[in-house]
Design a protein around this nucleic acid. Structure first.
Length: 397
DNA sequence: TGCGAGTCAATACC
DNA sequence: GGTATTGACTCGCA
């Protein structure tokens, strides 16, 4: 019952988002813009010049990080219900944000701890492989929404983004190889570091890049070495204004290609579809720290972030952020951290757009839910479905 | 069957 | 209003 409730809630949330975002529904129904993607033009850029203009302004015109933060704050006005929904700000969002809680066919395992709503999050290797595939074959994406992560990767090949995510792609591919028995593992990261010097959009994307590299860790056992402490290890990344923003090594430990551990992790992870995603070893503590910092920086309530990005409760997020378990000790909980990690990788405007939608939808639900739930609960109690004390966990709708 | 992991929702706290 | 804590629950696994 609880599982059903959880799945329902997340699914309904996504439906709300799609209903609110015509562009998003367009993307779902028709991904014929793949060619545009592959040619380096964003589909939403083509479809919505207004949105395109705004995006480029956000990305390229922002004169400083403070300005960026300011713009984010304005976007976030909608979070919590205070803002007005403005479709022109809504982009076809990254899967991890626009539909983080949907239920893919494989995700409908119906289990509570296997994180049904989180299953759609594609494994890193899958992303890398798919991207690679698209890149070389220009294969059209299927209409399956669950594949939108791949689409999102392709979207990142926008002219403005191209330089950023190509190395990223390499990096990810390298991680994929690292897991493979044939892979060379850490070497790929090294190559990436060299490539990264070439990017002219470092300033624009530095924060995002930091988010990525900061998550690339050598593993739990290296945490203490890599991080001089929470503040020492994190703040330079958070500010994103250090001298060489595109240089991963300046960011300390990053996503690991700890092949041995990853392999064991992979075999131990029971989540279908995520097994191939065990390529990386996420530094959970650093992810938690970064998420905490980002939420504070943009004044994003934990509840919003937890619901929208992670499809979890505020309490869960709070616990995870304060007491992150080592990656090696995580099971299905890895998916949650992957979501955080993915979110950190997103361009800031996409993060905020997703959260803004979340704020809008969550408010709508808040208005509609309490009475319905109370009524339903009353009925269930009367019917003897559950004892009142356990009502909150009984999964009533 | 017991235990641990993961999560939720209520509640306390700031 | 946002965050931290806690009790209870489900599920997978040994």
């Amino acid at each position: 019952m609880k599982t059903a409730y959880n799945a329902y809630r997340c699914l309904a949330k996504d439906l709300d988002v799609y209903a609110m975002n015509p562009e998003m529904t367009m993307d779902i129904g028709s991904l014929s813009h793949e060619q545009d993607l592959m040619s380096g033009h964003s589909p939403h850029h083509n479809r919505n010049p207004g949105a395109s203009l705004r995006i480029h302004q956000d990305l390229t015109v922002a004169p400083s990080r403070s300005a960026m933060v300011s713009s984010m704050a304005s976007i976030l006005d909608g979070v919590g219900g205070g803002g007005e929904y403005r479709p022109e700000l809504s982009l076809p969002l990254h899967h991890a944000m626009s539909m983080p809680c949907d239920t893919s066919p494989s995700g409908m395992s119906g289990t509570y701890t296997t994180l049904t709503p989180l299953q759609p999050l594609p494994p890193i290797s899958t992303v890398s492989d798919k991207f690679h595939h698209h890149h070389h074959h220009h294969q059209r994406l299927s209409g399956n929404v669950s594949g939108s992560f791949t689409l999102m990767r392709d979207e990142r090949t926008l002219p403005a983004m191209n330089n950023l995510y190509n190395p990223y792609h390499k990096d990810m591919s390298g991680m994929g190889q690292s897991l493979s028995p044939l892979g060379s593992g850490l070497g790929s990261i090294h190559n990436t570091q060299q490539t990264l010097h070439n990017y002219s959009h470092e300033k624009m994307l530095s924060s995002n890049f930091d988010a990525h590299t900061a998550m690339l860790t050598r593993g739990d056992q290296h945490l203490s070495r890599g991080l001089g402490g929470p503040a020492a290890g994190m703040m330079p990344h958070l500010n994103g204004m250090h001298g060489h923003p595109g240089h991963p090594q300046s960011h300390g430990p990053v996503l690991a290609s700890n092949r041995d551990r990853s392999l064991s992790s992979s075999s131990s992870s029971g989540a279908p579809g995520s097994g191939s995603g065990q390529l990386e070893e996420i530094n959970t503590r650093e992810v938690a720290q970064r998420i905490t910092a980002e939420l504070k920086r943009y004044s994003i309530p934990q509840a919003i972030f937890a619901q929208r990005v992670l499809c979890r409760s505020q309490g869960t997020l709070s616990d995870l952020l304060r007491n992150p378990k080592p990656w090696s000790k995580l099971k299905s909980g890895r998916e949650t951290f992957r979501r955080m990690w993915k979110w950190l990788q997103e361009p800031e405007f996409q993060r905020m757009s997703a959260l803004r939608l979340a704020g809008k939808t969550s408010v709508q639900k808040k208005r509609a839910r309490p009475k319905q739930r109370q009524e339903q609960y009353t009925k269930e109690v009367a019917a003897g479905f559950h004892r009142p004390a356990a009502a909150n966990t009984s999964g009533h709708l």
